[in-house]
Design a protein around this nucleic acid. Structure first.
Lengths: 214, 214
DNA sequence: GTCTATAAATGGATAGAC
DNA sequence: GTCTATCCATTTATAGAC
């Protein structure tokens, strides 16, 4: 059963790891080939160049993130149930962090990706808006329409950049504690909108969740 | 009186403009020299290389942003007065956007800047915390200590990344309307904490401000 | 599919004349 | 301070053998 892994897939896997570790700009096609112990020529047989590799990696990312972002829209969730989706979004972004660490630079060189990434951002925002709308509908939060719209946009930005912010601010910690920090800070954005009666429960839930996962 | 502008300063000015327009990674020392109509050798007489130029630009940025971030701490301000500082912070970031557009990449190549930038982020957060604390003290907002701390961190991240988010999401608009959008979205983060009586006033103020500046 | 070898282009950097 | 000339290293990319 141990099928031989295709060279194309090995290239993608290795490139992703190197990009995330050293930064995409610091990694050349020669280095990727070197780590894999294949020739540069072989690499160029599979991919036209670094941009082609990045675009192939983006294909994978896009498919996964779209799935995650579409899931919570389908059924209304309680506040308590939403954190798992936030967690998964952060995990995906973390797995693909070389891209998020150099968004502008990469999108300049891969212009095809720009509209696709913009659509992902809008999907993030729409998903957030739809969840907030559901929560407001069932009275779990109290929040005007205008405030919900602004909050949804900030949600999308927060999900997109928080991991980078934490790492730039000089926080130490392994991947999973940083992601938990992200989930916590995201959930805290909802706190002021939770009405008085449930606010204690909400704080309790956040505390428990943080304790469990840290 | 029309003093001749020093070549060193012309290099910095041109490099900043090119970096912001084309992205730092896409601009070579040769190109900078070419635009200035000086030889690459001359450029290297003034700066050891691109990193030295970036670090000199960062010196300027750091000095200005520290000034802005220190100003509002000195005296307590009403909510209405704070927007001008937010506006100026966004303007500074916009003037220096090549750096914010490739934070990770540049900090990898200029490791000296990393702790300095981390300190700026912390200063952003501290300034926000101190303003929030003052506002809470005078009853302009209602917000627990824990919520204030979390909000201050999100403020810092929001100031740092919002312009990039808007541009990546595909919004059109000139510089100043994008910055106004930033100020507005930042102020909206405070809205849920404004107590009932003043909330109408706050909404009114935000609307007026947006109308005036757009 | 994979390799070797090498071309072609670019960018960083310096020496030495003016 | 500034220029010309040049060198070196890196990277992308391709041709052709196996």
């Amino acid at each position: 059963m141990a099928r031989k892994v295709k060279t194309r897939d090995r290239i993608l896997k290795t490139a992703l790891a190197l990009f995330n570790e050293e930064g995409e700009a610091q990694v050349s096609t020669v280095e990727i080939a070197g780590v894999l112990d294949i020739s540069p020529g072989n690499l160029y047989y599979h991919f036209k160049g670094k941009e082609a590799i990045i675009e192939a990696l983006f294909d994978d990312f896009e498919e996964e993130i779209r799935q995650v972002l579409s899931a919570p829209i389908k059924r209304a969730l309680s506040i308590e149930d939403n954190w798992i989706y936030i967690y998964i979004v952060f995990e995906e972004i973390n797995d693909f962090r070389f891209f998020y660490n150099n968004l502008t630079g990469i999108l300049e060189r891969c212009p095809d990706l720009r509209p696709r990434f913009a659509r992902i951002l809008r999907l993030k925002e729409e998903t957030a808006a739809s969840i907030l709308s559901a929560l407001a509908g069932e009275g779990a939060i109290e929040c005007s329409g205008a405030e919900r719209a602004a909050l949804a946009a900030r949600f999308a930005a927060h999900l997109t950049f928080w991991l980078q912010f934490v790492s730039l601010a000089g926080e130490k910690g392994d991947n999973s504690s940083v992601i938990n920090n992200g989930v916590h800070s995201t959930m805290m954005m909802i706190a002021p909108y939770v009405p008085g009666d449930d606010r204690a429960l909400f704080a309790e839930m956040l505390k428990k969740q943080t304790a469990t996962l840290k």
